[in-house]
Design a protein around this nucleic acid. Sequence first.
DNA 1: AATGCAGCCAACCGCGTCAAA
DNA 2: CTTTGACGCGGTTGGCTGCAT
Length: 262
Amino acid sequence: MAKSLSFDKNGVKKGAWNEEEDDKLRAYIQRYGHWNWGLLPQFAGLSRSGKSCRLRWMNYLRPDLKHGNFTKEEDDLIVDLHNKLGNKWSTMAAKLPGRSDNEIKNRWNTHLKKRAHEDEMIVLENEHEGSIELDQVEQKENPNLEVLHEGEIFLEGYLESPSCSSGTELSSCWMSTSDYTVSSDVALQTSDYESTGDFWSEPFLPDITSSIDNMLSPSDLIDGYVSHDQSSCQDVTMSDEFSWSTFDSYFQYNNELVDWSF
DNA sequence: AATGCAGCCAACCGCGTCAAA
DNA sequence: CTTTGACGCGGTTGGCTGCAT
């Protein structure tokens, strides 16, 4: 299913994620948020690229994702949205709560593209037969009448659509995947949570005590020196390279959500 | 039982955009 | 205005799974 495990020349891990890595990433983001994807792997104790972490979180670990089979309503909506938007997967994801753009893209490519093509052929056949009959009638009744072409009908439907159609609008659609973070509400929910036994419908309850042992909070940077025993995560010192603006934005972003005391 | 093949999907890659310096 | 870095998006790939032969 997933790609086989390998390492690039910088020792960055590639390929399928294991459960331990998932737990680390999930626990870290639920505790600190994703304040900088580039630095996150180092702080979370992961030998992965920031890009890989972001992808894993967005497409698989986010607690609001469904992960189940697509319903007929969802399939219909995807087909409808694809007719209107084309391959704008992230825009479509914003209209489908609990689905990632990657999931929708895969769904389209593996199931719906074929179905949509077949439907289109049926419609074209029907239209062709219908238009021949209609043309014959219209030609008799009104020889000057122009028949609206398929493309014009499609365009009219598109222009009338109230859905998000520009890039700038996307961020305000339903939920921005880029702005997702764990709120205090989630923390409250998880503390009161009673398991139903269904993995995919349950909120994630990280075992913080075991999984944060080798993690670094952004506040660790202030200390200037951090020591821990994980070979996968080198000691971190506050250096000139580190962007204080990034750190400031982290504070701004998460201060109200995070309890800084261990 | 062994092999081949197609379907499926998680993950990677490259490029575009945007904001900050 | 230019450069740089972070992020997000869409296309593509690699390999697992299940079915057919």
